[in-house]
Structure formats: structure tokens, C-alpha cells
């Protein structure tokens, strides 16, 4: 054999079988956690929304969740305003999350209490018109009125990638989440006040 011929790779130093087994076990649990995480991102985000708004003085008044679809409503005592956030996960499995990302239908609603019966009635008429809209496209503002409590809501559907707000496995980017929700609520606030003429 000449010096220029390539030599066979040196055999890897023998590894402790216990170390190999522990490594396999650790990798297995990591994969298991990753599968679990795929179903948890929407819950993680709705939890962050709750913690963020409760910390700002809003009271959580409604919570409905079946693990994949979540709805929360908040009430702000001082100003008689309400917020609604609904998240419907579109990727409740690791396969779906890997293929389309952690996408979710997110509805954000902003409601104000009006004393004017005419305004509530007008909103209810708009609600009837809104129910005619049979579209799953984002960016459609719908109006909803509740005659019993006197709240008029404007809400909009968005299609969001939940991974935008998650840093690492379980850390939420509160600043980005807060900024995006505030911007949406601000737009709905302007729309609603413009519509009600206040």
C-alpha cells in the first residue's frame, strides 16, 4: 500500500453502553415532548393572553376551551369595555405543525357598552348582516350586539402563525404578542367609535 492511498477511517473509541442507553432515552423523551408541544402552542398563547390582560387590570369573565378551540372574554371595570380573543388551532399534531406551521384562526373582538338603544339595535341589524357573510377569509370586520347587557362588539378574523410569538419551547414573546393585539384592538376601537358616531 502506497502512502497516497486513502486509509480506512479509524474505529470510533468504544462507548459505554449505559451512556448509549441514556442518550437513547433522552432523545426519546425529547421527541415525545416535541409531539406534545405541537398540541400545546395554542394553549400556551391563550395562557399568555390571559396573564397579560389580567396583569393590566382586565378581569377574565369567560373561558371556554376544548383543547383546540379557545375563547376568552375580558371586562375592564373602569371603562365598561370588553375584549374577546378566540384561537382555533389548525395544527393539533406534529405532522400538521411541520407541514403548515402552527397556524391558527384568531378572532379578536372589542366591545363597548352603549346607553343608546338605537345604537345597540343598529348593531344587532349589522349582526344579522354579518351572519350572511359565509367566508373563512381573514380581514372581515363583523359587528355584534348584545341587547341584554348593552354591549356592541366589532371583531375581525386573522390567520396567524403562533410560532411568531413563541421563543424556544415554552417562552412567549409578550412584547410582540401585546403589540399585535393592541394594534388590532386599536383598529377595532376606531372602527366601532366611527360607526357609533361617538
Amino acid at each position: 500500500m502506497s502512502d497516497s492511498e486513502p486509509s480506512a477511517p479509524a474505529p470510533a473509541p468504544p462507548q459505554d453502553p449505559d451512556e448509549i442507553f441514556v442518550g437513547l432515552l433522552a432523545e426519546s423523551w425529547k421527541r415525545y415532548a416535541e409531539m406534545l408541544r405541537a398540541t400545546q402552542t395554542d394553549d400556551l398563547l391563550i395562557g399568555a393572553v390571559i396573564a397579560s390582560y389580567v396583569n393590566q387590570g382586565w378581569a377574565l369573565i369567560d373561558l371556554t376551551s376544548d383543547g383546540a378551540t379557545h375563547l376568552v372574554r375580558f371586562h375592564y371595570h373602569g371603562a365598561d369595555t370588553r375584549l374577546l380573543v378566540a384561537i382555533k388551532s389548525m395544527s393539533e399534531s406534529l405532522t400538521a405543525a411541520k407541514v403548515i406551521g402552527r397556524l391558527a384562526d384568531v378572532t379578536v373582538g372589542y366591545g363597548i357598552r352603549v346607553q343608546n338603544f338605537q345604537a345597540v339595535w343598529s348593531a344587532i341589524k349589522s349582526e344579522i348582516k354579518s351572519s350572511i357573510i359565509m367566508s373563512d377569509e381573514p380581514g372581515i370586520i363583523t359587528v355584534d350586539g348584545d341587547m341584554t347587557s348593552g354591549y356592541v362588539f366589532a371583531q375581525v378574523d386573522l390567520l396567524l402563525d403562533l410560532d411568531t410569538y413563541v421563543v424556544g419551547g415554552l417562552q412567549v414573546d409578550y412584547a410582540k404578542l401585546g403589540a399585535h393585539l393592541s394594534a388590532t384592538v386599536n383598529a377595532l376601537h376606531k372602527y366601532l367609535y366611527g360607526r357609533l358616531g361617538n
Binding site: 400545546q40 394553549d43 400556551l44 391563550i46 395562557g47 399568555a48 390571559i50 396573564a51 390582560y53 389580567v54 396583569n55 378581569a59 377574565l60 373561558l63 376551551s65 376544548d66 383543547g67 379557545h70 375580558f74 415554552l170 412567549v172
Partner: peptide, 18 residues
Amino acid sequence: GELVLAFAQLGMPAVRFA
């Protein structure tokens, strides 16, 4: 809501709701 906030402040995020 207060429980979710209290746990979040302890570094324990909510990961499952029913």
C-alpha cells in the same frame, strides 16, 4: 385568570386548558 397570572409570574406557563 388570577391563577394563570400567578403561575406565569412563577415561571410556570399554562400549556393546557379544558
